[in-house]
Design a binder for these strands. Structure first.
Length: 123
RNA sequence: CAUAAAAGUCGCCUUAUCGCUAUCCAUAACCAAUGGAUGGAGGAAAGUCCGGACACCAUAGAGAAUUGUAGCGGUUAACAGCCGUCAUCACACUUUAGUGUGAGAGGACAAGUGCAACAGAAAGCAAGUACAGGUAAUGCUGUAGUGAAAACAGGUAAACUCUACGAGGUGCAAUGUUACGUAUAUUGGAGUGUCUGCAUUAGCAGAUAAAGAGUACUCGCUCAAGUCUUCAAGGGGUGAACAGCUAAAGUUAGUUAGUAAUAGCUAAUUCAGAUAAAUGAUAAGGAUUUUCUACUUUUUGUAGAGAAUACAAAAUCCGGCUUAUAGACUUUUUUUAAAU
RNA sequence: CGGGGUGUAGCGUAGCCCGGUUAUCGCGCCACGUUUGGGACGUGGAGGCCGCAGGUUCGAAUCCUGCCACCCCGA
C-alpha cells in the first residue's frame, strides 16, 4: 500500500538518530526542517522517517500530538512522489520549527516544497 | 415565568475516502507482506499533594534521630480522604435564652525553655499608678486606666517542646528471562582462615572459601544480624527483545441494612496496552450556541451568510484530594412578577 | 517516575531560620545645585498589594495550606 506509514518505516533506533543528528545534512522550508542522511538500514522500506515537535514551543501534550499527527499524515500522502524519484536508502527526521498550530492544507504544500528541494539537492 | 446560589449528571453526532495500533483467522511457511473480523483515551487521563497493591534491597528486628496525624464515633485494603456528631466562632431572627444558616488543623502552657512591637506603673527571678474602702502596719481588698492578653493554675505550641498513635528504604527505568558465558565475571598480585603433602623452632608447594575468634565490609546513624577481604588490568551485549502488562479492593443494573460514608446479596458483562509513544486526516451533512442581513405589527418565528463547539492525551495498577473546563440538562432553596 | 531550588521598586539583591518602626543596599529614574553646555560630583525626592489565594495570630515579606511561573538534578 503506497500511502502506508507503519511502525517498520518509523525511525526508532537511538543509535541511528544520534548518528543522524551528528552527520546528517539539513534543509528547511519554514516551518519545517528536514534532516537527512544516506544510510543502509534493516528496514524493507527505502526511507525510515520520524517527526519531532519541541516541548518548549508547545507546552501541552495535546497540541504536540496534533502537530505530529498532521506531519505524519502529510508525509504519508506525499510518499509516492518521494519514492518515484529515490534509489538509495535514507533516514529522515522532520522537525516543526513554528510556534503556532497550522492548517492541514498549508502544511501539505510546505511538505511538497521540502521534498522537491530534497530531491533537487541529492540529484 | 424569570433570576441567583448549592449539589449532581452529560460533555458533539452521522456517512464516505485514505490511514495507525493490538489480538485472532486465512494465504503450505517464523518474520515480513496482503486480505478479513473484533477492540482502541478522560472526567479530570492533568498536577503529583496524600494513601495502598505489587517488586526488589540486608531476616525487614530494636533504638536514637527525622517526619506525619491530633475533639468524639463510624467507614475502608489504607489514608492527611469520606460520613455523622459535639465544643467553639461568625451572621440573621426572635428575644436574653433559643432557633436557623455557614465555618469548624480542636491533645497539653497544672513539666521545662523561649517570645510579647506600641501603649501601660507593671508583659513575669519582679515591681506597683489613680480613686475608694480597710488595717497596728503593708498591694490587704475593690474599681479605674493601657493593651490582643494584667496577678489569674495569666497569653502564646500553623514557637521549641511534651504526650498518644503511625512511618525501614527504593521504585515498573522495580524485578525476572533470552544472547557461547559472566559483572561478587575473567586474569594477575597481596592479606586472612581451613585442608592436604613435604618438613618438623622456621618454612615451602598445592587445593579451597566460612565451622570458631579477631580484623575489615554491608542500611543515612547505633545495636542486633549477615558476609572472606583488598589492589590492578579489563568495558561488549544495551539504555535490544520478551515477561512484568492489564480479570480487577473491576463495570452496569436491581435489592437489603444503615441518618450517612459504606457494606452485603442477586443478575448481567469482559471493557486500551502504545514505547521518538497507536486511538488520526480530509470532505459532506446534521445538532447546539451566537453575530449580521432580510421578511414578519411586536414577542416569537422563518430564510440566507459568517463564527464558535471547552479543558485537556493513558504510560505498572487502584482509592482519594487539588486545579482547569465552551455548552446542555436535573433537583433543592432564595428573590421578583402575574393569577387564584 | 522521583527529588531540589527561586519569585521583594525598571534591573540586580538584603531581610525570612527565631513574626513587631516608614521593608535594606547598589545601578537606573526625577528635581535642584555646579558648568558656556554635557559628563562626573553634591543635595533632595519618587517608585513596592513582598508571585497569587486562603488560614493561624492582636499583628504575616517572614509561620501553615493550596495554586501559578521559572530554573536545576537523578535513574
Amino acid at each position: 500500500m503506497q500511502f502506508s506509514y507503519t511502525k517498520y518505516e518509523k525511525l526508532k533506533s537511538r543509535k541511528l538518530i544520534k548518528q543522524l543528528f551528528e552527520d546528517g545534512k539539513a534543509i528547511s522550508v519554514f516551518p519545517l526542517r528536514l534532516i537527512y542522511l544516506k544510510k543502509e538500514h534493516a528496514s524493507n522500506y527505502n526511507v525510515q522517517a520520524s517527526v519531532s515537535v519541541s516541548k518548549r514551543n508547545f507546552k501541552l501534550a495535546v497540541s504536540r500530538n496534533r502537530i505530529k499527527r498532521l506531519m505524519r499524515e502529510v508525509y504519508r500522502l506525499n510518499k509516492p512522489f518521494l519514492y518515484e524519484n529515490l534509489e538509495n536508502k535514507y533516514i529522515f527526521m522532520f522537525i516543526y520549527l513554528g510556534k503556532k498550530e497550522i492548517k492541514f492544507q498549508k502544511l501539505d504544500t510546505k511538505m511538497k516544497e521540502i521534498i522537491k528541494l530534497f530531491l533537487k539537492k541529492i540529484s
